[in-house]
Design a binder for these strands. Structure first.
Lengths: 142, 142
DNA sequence: CCGGATTTGTACGTATGTATT
DNA sequence: GAATACATACGTACAAATCCG
């Protein structure tokens, strides 16, 4: 099985231009052409390269952020997110865990990147612990 | 503790206009003014009501979608998402569970709304089960 | 430290396409 | 078919953060 990397944008395609740009960037990331931690080309550069508006580029990058693949720092650029080391979190008997997107408040509080869910663990007592989903994994524990 | 509902947008505020619009809409939802399943006013209506561009309204609604609060249907409108009934999913010993945003493929495959993470459960055998995070909760099981 | 260049964020406008009512 | 509503795509302009000489 080999991977086909798309390298150009077709404005007449059924697929929206910004999705095509996102496809290209995902390819460059999956490819290893752009390694974790490295910056993508600037929005202007991408727009010029692929012959699209800056708007389309921003929407494309927005998709990557929502998927948890990239994060953007104003004035600096967009970088491929580093996979973080996950630590185990025990799921005790009689406790429930759900995953959801954080509220705006939680995102600020926990300093979460876009596209990072939270895991809420609730005990039968009603106590709730919130964990950033990208730093933990759950294991059954008795 | 009482809730302060913002009702107007101040273009001179430090807070971006689209975030102010999002705040207002979140308030109307938390408030019960707009109940789950009901449609928000149209983008144009919101833009006129708050004296902002349609762009700002779309960004605001985009925030709500990313938070899992709303979903938009083209040609119809944006509705407040219904909290769905969750079913328990056992987390067996020697299995790990992580939460993350779905890939584009998974989102299409599972027909997920924006702002809905997935829970991936991996056994020691290497088998992986994917669940929409909004329909399940995890419980420890021996 | 300062100032300019670069880069992303916000905001608005216009136009056209597509889906639903 | 018409009206309504969201999606896409381009453009402009200015603000704000960062980088760099």
């Amino acid at each position: 099985m080999h991977i086909v990397i798309i390298v150009s944008v077709d404005p007449r395609s059924d697929r929206a231009v910004y999705r095509q740009v996102a496809d290209i960037l995902r390819g460059l990331i999956a490819d290893g052409t752009i390694v974790p931690g490295a910056l993508l080309p600037s929005e202007k550069q991408l727009a010029d390269t692929y012959g699209v508006g800056r708007d389309a580029v921003r929407q494309a990058i927005g998709l990557l952020r929502a998927e948890g693949l990239a994060r953007t720092i104003r004035g600096e650029g967009t970088q491929v997110r580093q996979p973080v080391e996950r630590r185990p979190v025990p799921l005790l008997p009689r406790t429930h865990a759900i995953a959801r997107m954080p509220t705006e408040h939680e995102r600020a509080e926990l300093d979460l990147d876009e596209g990072v869910p939270v895991i809420a663990i609730r005990t039968s007592k009603g106590h709730e612990d919130i964990h950033p989903a990208d730093t933990v994994y759950l294991v059954a524990k008795d």
